[in-house]
């Protein structure tokens, strides 16, 4: 066991996890913003926006994330010249964030829409009746309640996002799954322990997120 700990200390495990956490952080914020905009499209009274929102969600939600990540690194960057940085690692990181963002935005949108469904229709009618235009009704009345009603499903999307950050390995981002492969290749005596260590690492990150989501969903529930 002591040998194994020595082996572990030779690798920058925390640093690799840190990449996953940073991917989660940036992609999470961007995807939540994009997902909120998409949700507003989908509940808006304008049919073309409804169509745009539902088309986006249906395409992105049903495309494998790996395909999106590979598209980023194999088409977006070399063919379409979308480049975030001259430094390869930085560029790949942000291409990874972009891929995670566009994919998870579809899920955030749908989670938020489930929250919108917890808001009685009368709330929107009352907002319209005092003369609030659609954007103000959405911003001031519907979405604040929708977010509070959607914390549990939003938490699930965040948990999926955390774990999906390992998919950007397909986009050459040096995160924990790439480090794990390197460790397994180098330290063949400890394959199970290495796997276990990485798995437990994710549990340590994900469990508090789940607990927080459960706590907040109760704490912030709108009483009616």
């Amino acid at each position: 066991m002591a040998d194994f700990l020595t082996v572990l200390s030779e690798y920058d495990i925390a640093g690799a996890y840190w990449v996953n956490i940073k991917l989660t952080f940036f992609a999470g914020i961007f995807a939540l913003v994009l997902g909120t905009i998409l949700a507003m499209f989908r509940i808006s009274p304008v049919p073309s926006l409804n169509f745009a929102g539902s088309t986006y969600v249906n395409i992105l939600r049903n495309t494998p994330l790996t395909i999106i990540i590979v598209f980023g690194i194999a088409v977006l960057w070399p063919v379409l010249k979308v480049e975030f940085s001259d430094v390869f690692a930085v560029n790949f990181f942000w291409l990874g964030v972009l891929g995670l963002t566009v994919y998870h935005a579809a899920f955030f949108c749908e989670a938020l829409r489930s929250g919108v469904n917890t808001v009685p229709a009368g709330q929107a009618e009352a907002a319209r009746a005092i003369g609030l235009p659609f954007l103000d009704s959405a911003r001031l009345v519907i979405l604040p309640q929708a977010f509070r009603g959607a914390i549990a499903p939003l938490g699930n999307v965040v948990i999926a996002l955390i774990k999906n950050t390992t998919v950007v390995a397909a986009g050459s981002v040096a995160e924990i799954s790439i480090l794990m492969r390197e460790m397994v290749e180098n330290e063949s005596n400890y394959v199970y322990l290495i796997f276990l260590t990485v798995a437990v690492g994710f549990v340590i990150i994900v469990v508090p997120v789940g607990l927080l989501a459960t706590y907040l969903s109760k704490r912030l529930a709108v009483s009616r």
Binding site: G122, A129, I130, G131, L132, L140, S223
Partner: peptide
């Protein structure tokens, strides 16, 4: 709509806002 008030069967007060905020929202924003 701002010129025609509406009172609903199920009240429809904004559930996440205080009583005072329910009343001031329209005047302030509209």
């Amino acid at each position: 709509r701002a010129d025609v008030g509406m009172v609903f069967q199920s009240f429809n007060l904004f559930a996440h806002k205080t009583i005072l905020e329910n009343i001031t929202l329209g005047p302030i924003k509209v």
